[in-house]
């Protein structure tokens, strides 16, 4: 839960000052296009965990025991019992993570490079510039962002279906 509690700005700033040589590997992540997805993943992981974990915990241990007495080794139990039951909530979690990453601003604004900005960063930049054209473009971009996020969330909710024992 820590990444949720810590301001995304701190996460972004921290990434900027620490990831010039991550783990001693000679790769400067700060100039790499990978940095933004990594930061967004850090921000979104708590949501994924929060969505998937309750489903995994809710699986009756006796269901796994039943599988074991039917001759399933632990690996097969995970593959055939835990994974399929968790799959739906995993789909929901992926949707959440995608929507959150799409709209993430705090960390991304620090890390996005001028040539590869994300939608919220573009909107911020457009508003900062004078002129009705820029303002209009910012409005249009906001509508696009809102529509995208809404669509993704709707799809994710759909995917989750109305199974009994659902989470949230």
């Amino acid at each position: 839960m820590l990444p949720l509690g810590v301001s995304a700005v701190t996460v972004g700033f921290g990434f900027l000052i620490t990831l010039d040589r991550p783990l001693g590997i000679d790769v400067d992540l700060r100039t790499s296009g990978l940095l933004v997805p990594i930061a967004q993943a850090v921000v979104a992981i708590p949501l994924v965990v929060r969505t998937v974990l309750p489903t995994l915990r809710a699986i009756d241990p006796r269901l796994r025991e039943a599988a074991a007495t039917l001759g399933a080794a632990p690996g097969r139990v995970f593959r055939t019992v835990d994974a399929p039951i968790a799959a739906r909530s995993l789909g929901l979690a992926v949707g959440f993570a995608f929507a959150v990453s799409l709209g993430e601003f705090g960390a991304t604004s620090f890390l996005a490079r001028p040539d590869t900005a994300t939608l919220p960063v573009v909107i911020f930049r457009l508003i900062g510039r004078p002129g009705a054209e820029n303002y209009g473009m910012a409005l249009a971009a906001s509508v696009v962002l809102a529509l995208l996020t809404a669509t993704v969330m709707l799809l994710a909710e759909r995917l989750r279906g109305d199974r009994p024992g659902g989470e949230f």
């Binding site: 009756d60 006796r62 269901l63 025991e65 039943a66 599988a67 074991a68 007495t69 039917l70 001759g71 399933a72 080794a73 632990p74 055939t80 019992v81 399929p84 039951i85």
Partner: peptide
Amino acid sequence: VHRRGFGLMFQEGQLFPHRDVAGNVAYG
């Protein structure tokens, strides 16, 4: 457990909810 070859049937059945009847019976 999975090598003992002992079957176990529980009070509430513990059927696999994501499989149909044939899928459940065929699990073993």
